[in-house]
């Protein structure tokens, strides 16, 4: 009991240690798993995140020429699986924890990333090209030849590779 009393008196003398949060700043850890950030320029819309998400928060849908990557936070459990499994490193969890939302915002509380398809310069088909971070993971040395092949659609790439083989 005397120990408690000592702590209590010390608290009284030192003053409150309360975080002034709603009115002031607060401490946020660097590695806090908060809202997602999807880099649409790196993402290849492979669907790994959708497959791996335990709560089904991520949904990728094709609309015309654009893949829409939607994350609905009201069912997200902030486990970080999407970041861990993302082959390109397009998904990063930020430390933004402001998740409170009202009834009207419930189904609008999402992060949307639009991954647009590109046109193949040879045949004109639409496709999502492999991005540089993905290629960097697969090949130790990247030369201009690989970079040129990246721009072609899968069919044309096959043709180009065979042509190079038999020349």
């Amino acid at each position: 009991m005397s120990g408690f009393l000592k702590i209590a008196i010390r608290n009284l003398l030192k003053g409150p240690v309360t975080d002034p949060y709603p009115f002031g700043k607060t401490f946020i850890p660097e590695k806090l798993r908060g809202k997602l950030k999807v880099d649409a320029s790196i993402c290849t819309a492979c669907g790994t995140c959708q497959e791996v998400c335990p709560s089904g928060a991520i949904y990728i849908k094709k609309e015309n020429d654009v893949y829409v990557h939607t994350t609905w936070y009201n069912t997200c459990c902030f486990c970080g699986n999407c970041e861990f499994f993302c082959p390109t490193g397009a998904i990063k969890l930020t430390n933004d924890f402001h998740t409170a939302n009202t009834k009207e915002e419930k189904f609008k509380f999402v992060t949307i990333a639009a991954i647009s398809e590109k046109e193949c310069p040879v045949c004109g088909n639409k496709f999502v090209p492999a991005t540089l971070p993905l290629i960097e993971k697969s090949y130790p040395h990247i030369n201009d030849e690989i970079k040129n092949l990246m721009k072609l659609c899968p069919e044309c790439r096959k043709k180009a590779a065979f042509e190079r083989l038999y020349q």
Partner: peptide, 9 residues
């Protein structure tokens, strides 16, 4: 009581 517990109250 809040001050003794280190809170603002």
């Amino acid at each position: 009581v809040a001050r003794l517990q280190g809170r603002i109250g």
